[in-house]
């Protein structure tokens, strides 16, 4: 079902996002040119890439504060994102949003929110509009595992199920909300099973396996597009770096270095790296590196917005 070309595309997109995030981590301190809270996506790339590749033109994503991966996977412009992180006028939000508030309407990236669960109803609302206008598009609500604890998640699920809205809820379960582990926040019931009470499908996938994410997304999106209502996809994954910022944080003690290393072993990119030769990989890295250099140069050289 997933041919070699698609697999390669998925690999390339994940690699691109990884390189962007790692470059941001590298230059964040001590230069301190990006003066905004930055939540890196390193380790979670397979989720946004797998989901967004199941979408077509006109479909939208409503991301959350860990937004870079979703923005890039849906086709956002890297230069505009970098400029936004640098607080520049040329930023996708003209310097008013920063890392947590990215937008690219043309690519179908609706504005992202830093309030937990904040954009879940936005996706349901886009889906409501698609239904009213009778267009066959689908909206993706993405969120982390803590957003499941918010009332608005359940309110949106209830309505989406009731009206069979063309929306897919994607929960990136990375096991922690900042430093609070899942076990202290939720009863021991898997997140994907919460959908039982709403009468809609819930599936759990290995969120570090881009092919599995893609397949789950394809099925959920097809259901939604056909008018058969929403699905919740719980993608099990792990953020490598600290909740916000460029560092590793196992020294804090809320999670162990060993746990991190186990997840690094399960790196989503490494798992499909057999689609490219070593030479191809080198060329990709070289090309992406150049693009990232250019985006950073662009961001640096762009003017700041003028306070009015």
């Amino acid at each position: 079902m997933i041919n070699h070309d698609l697999k390669k595309k998925l690999y390339k997109e994940m690699l691109y996002i990884r390189m962007i995030e790692e470059r941001i981590a590298e230059i964040y301190h001590p230069a301190d040119e990006m003066k905004c809270p930055t939540h890196l996506y390193t380790g979670q790339e397979a989720v946004a890439v797998g989901i967004c590749n199941a979408l077509i033109e006109g479909d939208v994503v409503c991301p959350y504060h860990r937004s870079h991966g979703w923005y890039m996977a849906k086709g956002g412009d890297l230069k505009a994102m970098m400029a936004e992180l640098f607080g520049k006028e040329a930023g996708c939000s003209k310097g008013w949003g920063g890392s947590m508030h990215l937008v690219d309407v043309g690519s179908g990236v609706m504005g992202s929110s830093s309030i937990l669960g904040g954009t879940i109803p936005h996706a349901a609302g886009c889906a409501l509009a698609f239904q009213i206008k009778e267009v066959e598009n689908v909206a993706i609500a993405s969120c982390g595992d803590a957003a499941i604890e918010e009332g608005v998640f359940h309110e949106s699920m209830n309505w989406a199920s009731l009206k069979k809205l063309p929306v897919v809820f994607v929960c990136e379960n990375n096991l922690y909300s900042t430093s609070s582990p899942l076990g202290v926040r939720q009863p021991p019931v898997e997140i994907y099973k919460r959908t039982v009470s709403y009468g809609i499908p819930g599936v759990r996938v290995d969120g570090n396996d881009v092919l599995k994410v893609y397949e789950a997304a394809l099925e959920a999106v097809s259901l939604a597009r056909a008018g058969d209502g929403p699905t919740l996809i719980e993608a099990m994954t792990y953020r490598w770096r600290e909740h916000v910022g460029p560092n590793y944080d196992y020294s804090l003690g809320y999670r162990s270095k060993q746990e991190l290393e186990e997840w690094i072993e399960k790196c989503p990119i490494k798992r499909v790296s057999d689609v490219v030769s070593e030479r191809e990989e080198e060329l990709l890295i070289e090309g992406f590196s150049k693009e990232i250099d250019e985006a950073i140069d662009f961001a640096r050289q762009s003017p700041f917005p003028k306070p009015s």
Binding site: V60, C62, I120, P121, H122, A123, A124, G125, V152, E155
Partner: peptide, 21 residues
């Protein structure tokens, strides 16, 4: 009619407005 979910309703109105409503 809507379900009794004022917060999601406003959120959904926001989302619908993104699509020109």
């Amino acid at each position: 009619d809507t379900p009794a979910c004022e917060n999601a309703t406003v959120g959904m109105m926001i989302g619908a407005s993104f699509q020109g409503m």
